[in-house]
Amino acid sequence: MAWDISHLQVLEAESIHIIREVASEFQRPVMLYSIGKDSSVMLRLAQKAFYPGPIPFPLLHVDTSYKFKEMIEFRDRLMAEVGARLVVSTNHKALDEGANPFRLGTERCCGLLKTQALLDGLRAGNYDAAFGGARRDEEKSRAKERVYSFRDTLGQWDPKNQRPELWNIYNSRIEPGESIRVFPLSNWTEMDVWQYIHRESIPIVPMYFAQQRDVLVRGSSIIIPELAITQPRADEKLQRMKVRMRSLGCSPCTGAIRSEADTLPKIIAELVAAKNSERENRVIDHDREGSMEIKKREGYF
């Protein structure tokens, strides 16, 4: 008898172990659900962890109101299918005051509509543990992130004072008001995520697949103009081209890429050949050197 076990099975088993530990050791866990492919994988792992029982915690979506329409449609369809309980958190106050990335810059806009709305949502639910889909391979500051990432009463991360993490034994002890962020996909790479989606036939937002769209080309970004604030200026024109999203976020800040990849194997083939890592097309990470680390210290995922 051969005891072959693939890397995907090892990663799956590890993630399920983490999800079960958190669900058993915390009073009020919640799973952050961003609608993206990593969230799709995390949701499937949660289904597996408690099967044949239901997922014993709600999902929380931080909605900036600038998400693509197709993302929201997908979210609502999937929640009905899975039977999960969804909580949506939006910073309506900032939106009423006209918050958008063009007026505020991406950094301040993210601070209000993502970080603030996230912290508000976590506080409103009194959640003591929040699952996030971040992976260590995404960005350099994440390479040292723990699986259980401890946050103080203000939700902040102190990279110099992280709890050591050995084996698969996690320290779940916190004081009232403190919380942890949990990253069950810590050890997955982008390629692992795509291969797992392929192997398990996990549903993802159709925007990941290439199709003909009317887009706005601005500098090195390809913008899908869904909103009043992303309509072409007088000197700009819409162009029709076959594009897809490599990662999903807010429509003004998440660029599309030109692509012919309209099936999963084609996406994976494209990934193999791609020379740029995944977050290249997100404007926010390049604001300044180490910007992801700064956002995380402030409470962003």
Binding site: H198, R199, S220, S221, A261, P265, A269, A274, N276
Partner: peptide, 24 residues
């Protein structure tokens, strides 16, 4: 812009690649 993502798929056997990848 972002043309780096365009791949010539005729040069690459995806199914074979995936079979190999998923069994690693």
């Amino acid at each position: 812009p972002a043309a780096a993502g365009v791949v010539d798929l005729t040069l690459f056997d995806v199914d074979e690649f995936l079979r190999n990848e998923e069994s690693k």
